[in-house]
Write a protein that binds this DNA or RNA. Structure first.
Length: 340
DNA sequence: GGACGTCCTATGTGAGAACG
DNA sequence: CGTTCTCACATAGGACGTCC
């Protein structure tokens, strides 16, 4: 087989297909792409070299391998980025109940009289770094009785979900600082800090040790912050742009299945299944929902431990802890690393 | 213009699933 | 159980850009 070089348009199209599928395209899809390429002016002339099925197929194989090797994942690679296409298609299905008005800086999205859509971040048990949560897929209890949720990190492959301890590793999303907010960052504060490593750059918890204030100019905040990372106790001087503040009013998060929304979600899931059965997520459901599994059910997040005796316990009591064999957390490997 | 490094495509190998 | 197919993975080698 002769060696060809794909045009920019062809590469763009194949990348688009790969991004949409997040998987190796099936034979008919590759055949159609091949035919499309050969029908284009770039390939249809007398002196042009037509592309063959194997070449397109090889391109997909190599690109998937390359992405995996680099820890690359479409469409976004790092947290604190704008919402991605994947995130928009799979919004987090959880709500926070609070009797007090939501903190406008820490709660976003839709709100209702008794619940507020919130943005969360979760700490990966694999590397201790914090990632934005795109969606919570299901809920269970560990052998120690701790509540755990299966989260899908924003900008990562759907199959790279992790089980997260709700009490220890799930919280409201940290907030990137704008220049005028640098005065709110004080010595002793817990922050989320962007740490550049040799092979990766990730967000870790850190404490502010010292702040050196400087006069702001047209470039914005020029202050520097001496921080100590909690995970490795290393110290570093960082600019404000690497600092994310913790929300002023943090809450204890508690997750329950919302039965009233489950049916609505299930209908949508079934509709999606008609289009792409590979993307259906199964979530354990309470025994009274019929059958061992049900369609993905929306989850509720209860913000306050004092609520645990009321609605939360009532609904959580319906959730059966999985068999011990299923309690083993699935962690992904080096794919989680994010290129700096 | 040659050496060198990087990127891109082709090829080979082994594992696992499907099928007769 | 053997064959076929698909996939992941590793590596070879050509194309191309950069540097001296």
């Amino acid at each position: 087989m002769g060696r060809i070089r794909f045009t920019l348009a062809e590469v763009s199209k194949m990348e688009e297909v790969l991004r949409d599928l997040n998987a190796m395209p099936k034979r008919p899809a590759i055949q159609k792409l091949t035919a499309d390429f050969n029908a284009s002016p770039d390939r249809s002339g007398d002196d042009k070299v037509p592309v063959q099925y194997n070449q397109v197929h090889t391109w997909f194989q190599n690109r998937r391998y390359k992405q995996k090797r680099r820890g690359e994942r479409p469409p976004a690679q790092v947290k604190k980025m704008l919402p991605t296409g994947a995130e928009a298609q799979h919004p987090a299905s959880y709500w926070v109940h609070s009797s007090s008005p939501p903190n406008s800086e820490s709660h976003s999205g839709n709100s209702s009289s008794d619940g507020h859509l919130v943005q969360l971040e979760a700490k990966s048990p694999r590397n201790g770094a914090w990632y934005d949560v795109a969606a919570i897929q299901s809920c269970r209890f560990s052998e120690t009785g701790d509540q755990e949720v299966q989260v899908w990190f924003s900008g990562f492959w759907a199959e790279e979900e992790e089980w997260i301890n709700v009490c220890k590793s799930l919280r409201l999303r940290s907030l990137p600082c704008v220049a005028r907010e640098c005065v709110d960052v004080l010595p002793g504060d817990l922050i989320l800090c962007y740490q550049d490593g040799k092979e990766q750059a990730l967000y870790f918890d850190a404490h502010v040790l010292e702040v050196e204030r400087r006069t702001h100019d047209i470039r914005g905040c020029l202050c520097s912050f001496l921080v100590r990372y909690d995970h490795d106790h290393s110290e570093e001087i960082v600019p404000l742009r690497k600092v994310c503040r913790r929300p002023s009013a943090d809450v204890n998060i508690n997750i329950v299945i919302d039965h009233s929304l489950a049916e609505q979600k299930a209908k949508k899931s079934r509709k999606r299944m008609d289009m792409n059965p590979d993307k259906v997520t199964m979530v354990p459901s309470p025994p009274n929902q019929g059958g061992p599994y049900d369609m993905a059910a929306p989850l509720l997040i209860m913000p306050d431990s004092t609520h645990r005796d009321s609605i939360a316990d009532e609904q959580m009591g319906d959730i059966e802890a999985p068999p011990k064999g299923e309690a083993t957390s699935k962690t992904h490997g080096d794919k989680m690393n994010v290129g700096a």
